[in-house]
């Protein structure tokens, strides 16, 4: 009898193990399935609308044909503005944390706060910029949209800059100091160069993050049906146009929204894959 008991307990344990393994396999298939489903329906719905006109014509009124030129240009302008404002601040702050104040109390506080900003709801950032820029200026503007996106760029760049500079071996700093290089030059000429690939990755990840952001733009740069290069006025952007067109009752607009969604997703995926490739080549060399 004891043999039978132990063998039945053993087979029970084996059964549990098999069930758990099957469940974990199913969970992985479940997760990957969503990716395939979402990308599949994006290609299915968006690809047919992809044509030259999308990149050369303005957003149409309902019922007419047109393209997405003004929101694409607007998105590029807002993203560029955000990177121009956010990257220098982020790199400088990350430099302080890794170089000057690596063991400071200030650094650990900034790191904690920065990590929270990294995942803070982006719609709150929109409210913040509305309060400090749109309300005092009295109108929505491209500048406000760019600054709102810059607030999202900063934490990403701070994080990667700090991480990458921390990885730079101290021997490099010591060598730089031993030939009489001042600290600032040893950071900008030696450490930045050593950490270049990683820091660039940070900027790419930040661009990938903001290029699909809609919430902070809704009430900062608003939207614009027409061609405009004036950053002091409302500016069209791809995500906001998708939002507006997708929720409209017009079939043409909905089709354009799908096409825009496909363009954004492809851009984001290419950016994040490039960023990953940069990191791996950086590690190998």
């Amino acid at each position: 009898m004891p043999d039978k008991v132990s063998s039945s307990r053993y087979s029970g344990r084996r059964r549990n193990n098999a069930v758990a393994m099957a469940l974990s396999l199913a969970a992985t298939a479940f997760g990957l399935g969503w990716l395939v489903l979402i990308l599949g329906s994006l290609l299915w719905e968006g690809f047919s609308g992809l044509s030259l006109a999308v990149f050369t014509e303005m957003t149409p009124p309902p019922g007419a044909s047109g393209g997405l030129l003004n929101p694409i240009v607007g998105s590029l302008a807002l993203t560029g503005l955000a990177v121009l404002i956010g990257t220098p601040i982020g790199i400088l702050a990350g430099t302080y944390m890794a170089e000057y104040g690596r063991y400071d109390r200030l650094t650990s506080v900034v790191r904690f706060i920065n990590d929270i900003l990294l995942s803070a709801p982006s719609i709150v950032v929109g409210l913040f910029i509305y309060e400090i820029m749109v309300a005092p200026m009295g109108h929505f503007s491209g500048w406000a949209g760019g600054v709102a996106l810059a607030v999202l760029v900063i934490p990403v760049v701070v994080r990667t800059t700090e991480d990458m500079l921390t990885l730079v071996p101290n021997a490099l700093r010591e060598a730089a100091t031993s030939i009489g290089l001042p600290r600032s030059l040893s950071i900008t000429r030696i450490c930045y160069r050593a950490a270049r690939a990683g820091m660039l990755t940070g900027v790419l990840l930040a661009v990938a993050r903001i290029s699909g952001e809609t919430a902070p733009l809704l009430f900062t740069s608003l939207n614009n049906q027409f061609w405009s290069t004036n950053l002091n006025a409302p500016v069209a952007s791809l995500p906001v146009v998708i939002f507006q067109f997708a929720l409209s009752p017009y079939k043409d607009w909905q089709a354009l929204a799908w096409t825009g969604a496909l363009i954004i997703t492809l851009a984001v995926l290419i950016l994040s894959i490039t960023a990953r490739a940069l990191v791996t080549t950086g590690k190998q060399s």
Binding site: I38, S41, L42, A208, S211, G212, E213, T214, A215, P239, I242, F243, A246, A257, W258, A261, I264, T265, V268, L269, S272
Partner: peptide, 10 residues
């Protein structure tokens, strides 16, 4: 990495 607006429209 997929932007949330994509999840929305989908």
């Amino acid at each position: 990495g997929i932007p949330s607006i994509i999840y929305g429209i989908w």
